[in-house]
Design a protein around this nucleic acid. Structure first.
Lengths: 256, 256
DNA sequence: AAGGAATTCAAACAGCCGTTTGAATCATAC
DNA sequence: GTATGATTCAAACGGCTGTTTGAATTCCTT
């Protein structure tokens, strides 16, 4: 039953990848449940049993689809963060830089029509809304390292912000992004769908990064009127690079 | 076959509502596909065929679940917006006020454990990530009026912001919110899950409103260095009510 | 109390699902 | 060329799905 491949002999790798590609397409389009193995293998022009031969089960196939893409994606994220930290030589990074390092690779992948990265990104957005423990655990284990690195970087970049508040704001940011990349667009806010689809990811990036940076660095909510400390006014300097604007610290960390 | 009810005779309304309640629970917990009518009717302690007798089909049941809750929810949203506009006497509203009018009812409903509103909110978050045309159309028709009203209000409140940019930012806001209310939390950002679950919706509100207001009123991205106009500095006055702070206009509308 | 509609019920329907099987085919190593 | 293992294939398995049926029951009106 479904032996370990000893020699990836020629064509076998092709059917494996054909299955992965079709799975990516159909999972993204119809969801994990409603995309059946029969529809999937028909689209891939392989036999139905090939899925179980190469992957063992539908659940394992789902995992394989994610692993194929998530590993290089997260590696790219960490690479960009490494580059930023190396350039900063020990000083804290700007929130905008960190956000771009985190979401940039996703948005860039989402425009990669050639190798089908954009399909995976839609699938990723769908997975974020999934409740099945298997998929949740899969995402979590894929994200744990990268989230921890980025949280640490943001924590350094925003010395005034309490840990808990930062966690919530990262949560909000992930939500805004995953909703956009899911492309479900439950509520048709953009009048012309054609306009929407033709948006380049870079322009989405230009739109969402300032939004997220502003939210991330927003004044803290009052824990209570009595406890409130005055918040330093936000002073904007002109002529900075776009990505850095609005990223100044205007946050206070709650006293421990 | 499944006649129009002429007299909602006593118990029949009870089985209808028992079905709706169980459907809400199981749809929210497992999704629309994976929650079967058999599991659903068993939980409701009604006969399997009762679903088709009272609703006609599973799809119609899904619609009924949404309609029961969405109508009052949107009515509340519009009511709050009406109240704000009445109090403003023709002047534009604050972004913070508009945001609170839109998301407040949702968050309040999400803490309504008694009548099960919180279950529906989780279901609503799930529906936002759904791709099936039937559900998309259902959400869209339920939202079209309320979104248009709120978009108009925001457009007035942010006279400098291009229509397109505003649509995108509403998109981001909806994303952040639907991710939070879905409660899926694909990436476990908050260290202690206990802490997370014990958060009161009001405190979530206190956290997310400043985030959204800041994002909504963030400086516009440069369309290109040459086209850039100077952005008015953001001046914060002290002592305002919390919800209004950070809501000042610091946006420019792109020249037509 | 009787009649008729409204509702419930157990049972079955057809169809799709993921999975398994065992033989047929293919590629490679001897 | 033959043996050996990897891969493909058609077919079937059991199980679950939404839906339908037709009789049994309950409810309300007259």
């Amino acid at each position: 039953m479904h032996p370990k491949k000893q020699l990836p002999s020629g064509d076998s790798l092709n059917t494996r990848e054909r299955i992965l590609n079709s799975a990516e397409v159909l999972f993204a389009e119809h969801g994990f449940e409603r995309a059946s193995l029969r529809a999937l293998t028909t689209a891939a022009q392989v036999n139905l049993a090939a899925v179980h031969y190469h992957f063992g089960s539908k659940a394992a196939l789902i995992s394989a689809v994610f692993e194929r893409r998530l590993a290089p994606l997260n590696a790219e994220r960490l690479g960009e963060l490494d580059a930023l930290e190396k350039a900063a030589r020990g000083r804290p990074l700007t929130p905008a830089g960190i956000i771009e390092a985190f979401f940039g690779p996703v948005l860039r992948m989402s425009m990669d029509q050639g190798s089908g990265g954009h399909r995976f990104i839609r699938l990723l957005g769908r997975a974020h809304a999934e409740s099945r423990p298997a998929i949740r655990e899969l995402l979590e284990s894929a994200y744990v390292e990268v989230v921890e690195r980025f949280r640490a970087a943001l924590y350094r970049a925003l010395p005034q912000m309490p840990e808990k508040e930062l966690a919530w704001r990262m949560h909000f940011m992930l939500g805004a992004m995953s909703y956009v990349i899911a492309g479900t667009d439950a509520v048709q806010l953009i009048a012309s769908y054609e306009v929407r689809k033709s948006e380049h990811p870079e322009s989405v990036m230009k739109r969402i990064v300032p939004f997220l940076v502003a939210g991330l660095t927003a004044p803290l909510p009052d824990a209570g009127a009595a406890k409130t400390r005055r918040i330093e006014p936000h002073i904007r300097s002109r002529g900075e690079p776009r990505s850095a604007r609005g990223a100044e610290r205007r946050i206070e960390r709650k006293a421990a």
